[in-house]
């Protein structure tokens, strides 16, 4: 169907208004690189925000404000996906605090998890998590580390059918239970799978990432820096000269660009409690991404360090 002239004019007016309403600082920023969620086509920036350890600050007002500043910078840089879990202590409540301070940004893509050994108590935990975040519904709910996954997936699929969550996924980390992950990817209509992947831990390249592409499953990557250890390891060395070919200005961007340039990866979720770092991380979603040849060179270079 061709758009009518009125519709085109309305869209142009809406676009102009949206541009005027955006802060000037945002106008200067290029839009981040995005990838589609295969099951819907909805696009997500390739860098998100994790909250493991970094956002678990309890009721400390000073640290809570620092986390809120990280969230503010994350959205200012064009970020959308924030990922948390009931396992992460106070992280969910701290995310909620940061979101309330920002006036609940409409671009938020809320990703949380269910993590409880009793399947029947999953809905109560999800409701509690939703209360911490202060969202009307989660965009994505994942079964954390496959804990009681059969019962929880059944709950999550029912929630999705009822419009109470938009996407369903599963998570693992550090290469654990990959055979079960593959089995679930083959046999259940999940939208997302979350795995650990970085320039040195590339086991998922063998089976899980190709399977995700084949089955149309979005991939979230956790532990992109091995909880900071990888950054500390490589930071002792200068960036290789070829980093400039992909506009990687620092090691964080170098490592993230490696991850998100894999065609199966939808989004990486580095965690940080520092505004400078979230800006660095979001910089990986700008500029160029390495091709297959350069990716091989990047991996070989880091392995030699």
């Amino acid at each position: 169907m061709r758009p009518t002239r009125r519709a085109v004019l309305r869209a142009m007016a809406a676009g102009t208004a949206a541009a005027l309403l955006r802060p000037l600082s945002a106008l200067a920023l290029p839009a981040p690189i995005t990838r589609p969620i295969p099951s819907s086509g909805e696009r997500l920036p390739v860098v998100g925000l994790g909250t493991w350890i970094t956002f678990n600050v309890g009721d400390d007002p000073e640290l809570g404000d620092e986390c809120a500043a990280v969230i503010r910078a994350f959205f200012r840089e064009g970020g959308r996906m924030i990922d948390s879990s009931p396992m992460y202590g106070s992280s969910q409540a701290v995310v909620g605090y940061g979101l309330r301070k920002l006036g609940s940004p409409p671009s938020l893509f809320s990703a949380d998890k269910v993590w409880i050994s009793s399947g029947s108590r999953g809905p109560d935990q999800i409701e509690e998590s939703r209360g911490h975040w202060g969202v009307s519904r989660f965009d994505l709910l994942q079964v954390h580390n496959l804990l009681a996954w059969e019962e929880h997936l059944s709950t999550l699929f029912a929630m999705k059918a009822g419009g109470r969550v938009r996407y369903v996924g599963i998570t693992t980390s550090e290469g654990r239970r990959h055979r079960e992950v593959e089995e679930i990817m083959r046999t259940h209509p999940i939208d997302f799978v979350q795995v650990s992947y970085n320039v040195l831990d590339r086991e998922v390249e063998g089976r899980i990432l190709p399977l995700a592409q084949e089955r149309g499953i979005a991939v979230i990557v956790n532990r992109p820096f091995r909880e900071g250890a990888l950054i500390r390891q490589v930071e002792r060395h200068p960036l290789p000269s070829f980093a400039s070919e992909i506009a990687a200005a620092n090691w964080a961007q170098f490592l993230l660009k490696f991850i998100v340039s894999h065609p199966a990866v939808t989004c990486a979720i580095p965690a940080t409690s520092r505004v400078a770092h979230v800006i660095e991380n979001m910089g990986a979603a700008a500029g160029l991404l390495p091709d297959a040849a350069l990716r091989r060179r990047m991996a070989a270079h880091v392995e030699r360090l």
Partner: peptide, 15 residues
């Protein structure tokens, strides 16, 4: 051990 650590040293000592 680090897989079971839920918080940062800074958070703990500020607590």
């Amino acid at each position: 051990l680090s897989d079971f650590l839920l918080f940062s040293p800074r958070t703990y000592y500020r607590l």
